[in-house]
Design a protein around this nucleic acid. Sequence first.
DNA 1: TCAAAAGTGTTCGTAGTACACCCATGT
DNA 2: ACATGGGTGTACTACGAACACTTTTGA
Lengths: 256, 256
Amino acid sequence: MPDEPAPPPTGDPSAPDPPDQPLRVEVLSAVFQVRAAGDMSQQDTPRLCVLLRDPDGGGRTCPRRALPGGDVGPRETLAQSARRHLADDLDVAGLAHIEQLSVFSAPHRVPGTRTIASTYLGLLPSDARTQLPDGAAWVPVDALDPVTGPLVHDHGKIVDAARQRLAAKLSYTNIAFALAPRQFAMSELSEIYCAALGYNVDTTNLLRVLSRRAVVVATGTVGRTGRNGGRPPALYRFADSELRVTDEFATLRPPM
Amino acid sequence: MPDEPAPPPTGDPSAPDPPDQPLRVEVLSAVFQVRAAGDMSQQDTPRLCVLLRDPDGGGRTCPRRALPGGDVGPRETLAQSARRHLADDLDVAGLAHIEQLSVFSAPHRVPGTRTIASTYLGLLPSDARTQLPDGAAWVPVDALDPVTGPLVHDHGKIVDAARQRLAAKLSYTNIAFALAPRQFAMSELSEIYCAALGYNVDTTNLLRVLSRRAVVVATGTVGRTGRNGGRPPALYRFADSELRVTDEFATLRPPM
DNA sequence: TCAAAAGTGTTCGTAGTACACCCATGT
DNA sequence: ACATGGGTGTACTACGAACACTTTTGA
């Protein structure tokens, strides 16, 4: 699924590759944050947003939209490179999680020099306030194809892969720690799950599941009640602040 | 986990990368097959084996061991490149499945030119007979570190990553189709699961789980009884011959 | 006192495990 | 017939989903 089903090689498939062939390796990152959509027209329910950038620089009427990234430096790993390129747009210290997605290697996925893209998924807690430079913006992922045109090159596919990865890991890991604030009411966490998954999640059951797995723990403190009254919520936090698999081997697990 | 925690870059981390820096991209594949270990001393229970190759050519007394692979050609995707390099050792048409693993990019993971490795997991059905050239061999994965020395460079880590990926997907996908023969008794399939997972799997329950999920279906035919008598087994086959997720979202699944 | 939000308890369905028991074959 | 492996049936456990009911606040 990562590699597009490119047509079979037209040249001699067993030709030894010239060691000096021009070859670029770029790193592209899909960074997500759940944020209450900028327009305050609606009763803004939080939405999953992705960080996009205009590759031609800011200030256009109809900017092209691309994922942030760039080339790999000679002395850095790919993960370090991803962080370095993201530092142009946001405070990378706030990035709570970053992990590798697949490599996109179709020979002509971008025009010009043969460019292989190693892609990353990054997550930013919902309470991290970012000051984006010109040409960068948070775009709700469910408003991508229809409204603004498609993304540059194959970046749309990369965002899709990132969404799928996130949705899957929400189900069997504690990855939501990287999308949630340090402390939160279960209703807030539920909204984050809803935004990331795209469907409703029962708040009470979410608490039960995550408690049993010891993914979240109560802090003992309570938060403030909402605008229209209601009982003040207990506050929780994630037990770990790094990825942990919580439901490995749902089936075919080792005996005992 | 894919990128080793390399030391922070020593040079200027924000230096723009020279577009003509020497950079190699290699493809490495961990190909697995469950095979009844060559030595006929034991009551040979099948074991998970990985295809290794002596990078210095065959005929050594104490060969080094490495994963098969090599550089990417200018007109091929990484997956195509993986298949091309594997063709030196086996009939790639027999490879029932191949998928991307992570990228290994530590700056000095191999000496000399900066080399980034894109890695693949390949699976060969247990009944595929292979005629390996000199210098290539099937090595049981549980006999890697202790007996023969470690693998070259970081290839040991790559094999570990491949094993983990396989074990995980055995639990929630139909990936075993790529390790099993076209037709098989459930006891054979059970042995394959045992070999790949490293622990015992109950044959009767395996049938139930895989039947309910419509992963395997009965062919209606029966096989021959074993060496010491016993009821002849019903034969089964996998419903699909391509990867399918069978247990997506074990928890937090969409309503209805 | 009423609405709104949070939290608790209960019921239900279902998937997976363990294990006993029955079936079919070769010797 | 009997040992050997294959297959079926059943009971048990656990987890997650749904939903009703209770609790705590603000207006």
